[in-house]
């Protein structure tokens, strides 16, 4: 079972790599969509609308930004594909779905091999986070034709899985007692879900910043316009932030059960807190005059960096209660 899981892991990574190339080809040989979007709304009408809006919303003009974005469940279409699914796009999509399925089976068989939930160590955690990130991408794809996002999600996913499969790999085995608890499972599931969405939002924030810098860049001109990227970033963060908050709380409940204090400023907890606070700052910055847009995006990137530091740097280089194999 363990061997099967490992074989499927390799197949998954290869599938994603192929899909990534196909997505890149699809993006490169497609007409730039942003031109179409811009053509859709005549300027006069747009100006008129903004004028009306400002009056309605009051003196502060708080809705100066275009009506914004939402949590994934109700997202608007932000891409007008130049032409519909060409051959590259069909290959990309098919291979991604195939990879997603083998990815799923990789995780399930790993769970059977270890006879427990398959998220007990860094290798498994990374595998599941990558899986959920691809899932988030597929959901976005289904809801809003976010095909352009494919290459930008799959590239880091492939690198991430590569790292997980080589550096972080450990054989399937049982959990140490301190890790074997009900709240831990909840905590980890929530943390992985939020992490995977933050992962995608971090990519989007970077794309947004790149787009601001070079709106007509060769590749960048094929992405939706900056405002749409910004909204999508916000939508993902707004959806993931409560989940992350819950993950931190569940972790605190678990810590209370295991160590008798719900919060102890152990390095892991400290970085979860830092991550949380920077994401809160990101959400605030979107409601603060002068901090919208670019600065907000920097917060989104910084927050994701804190998340990565929390999982990889803290686990590997800083010793705390969380890094112990058994009880301290």
């Amino acid at each position: 079972m363990s061997g099967l899981s490992n074989d499927l892991f390799v197949i998954t990574v290869m599938a994603y790599a192929i899909a990534m190339v196909a997505f890149a080809a699809d993006l490169a040989f497609r007409r730039a969509p942003s031109r179409l979007v811009r053509a859709a709304v005549p300027d006069a009408v747009a100006a008129d609308r903004t004028a009306d809006q400002k009056v309605l919303v009051g003196s502060a003009g708080l809705i100066a930004a275009p009506p914004a974005p939402p949590a994934p469940p109700q997202v608007e279409i932000i891409e007008e594909p130049g032409r519909d699914y060409g051959r590259a796009a069909r290959i990309a999509l098919g291979v991604t779905l195939f990879g997603w399925l083998t990815h799923l089976v990789t995780i399930v068989t790993r769970g059977f091999a270890a006879r427990r939930v398959p998220w007990g160590n860094m290798y498994e955690f990374s595998t599941v986070v990558a899986f959920l990130a691809v899932t988030a991408f597929l959901v976005l794809l289904a809801r809003q034709k976010a095909r352009w996002l494919g290459v930008f999600v799959l590239l880091p996913v492939v690198l991430y899985l590569g790292l997980a499969g080589t550096v972080l790999y450990v054989k399937a085995g049982p959990l140490v007692p301190a890790l074997n608890s009900y709240w831990l499972k909840i905590h980890v599931v929530a943390a992985m879900t939020a992490t995977s969405m933050f992962f995608v939002s971090g990519i989007l924030a970077l794309l947004y910043l790149a787009k601001l810098r070079r709106p007509e860049g060769n590749l960048l001109s094929r992405l939706p316009d900056a405002a749409a990227l910004d909204r999508l970033t916000y939508g993902l963060v707004a959806f993931a932030f409560p989940i992350w908050t819950f993950a931190v709380m569940a972790g605190a409940i678990w810590a209370e059960a295991a160590w008798g204090r719900y919060w102890g400023w152990d390095p892991k907890e400290t970085w979860s807190f830092i991550t949380w606070v920077i994401y809160a700052a990101y959400l605030h910055s979107r409601a603060t005059a002068g901090w919208k847009g670019k600065r907000a995006a920097y917060f989104a990137v910084a927050a994701f960096a804190a998340l990565i530091i929390n999982y990889y740097v803290v686990n590997t280089f800083i010793v705390g209660l969380h890094s112990y194999a058994g009880v301290k």
Binding site: F273, V277, I278, A281, S285, T288, W291, A306
Partner: peptide, 15 residues
Amino acid sequence: LLLLFLLALAAVPGS
């Protein structure tokens, strides 16, 4: 916003 950011920054040496 500033205070939130400072708080995050101030927590770093603690880890």
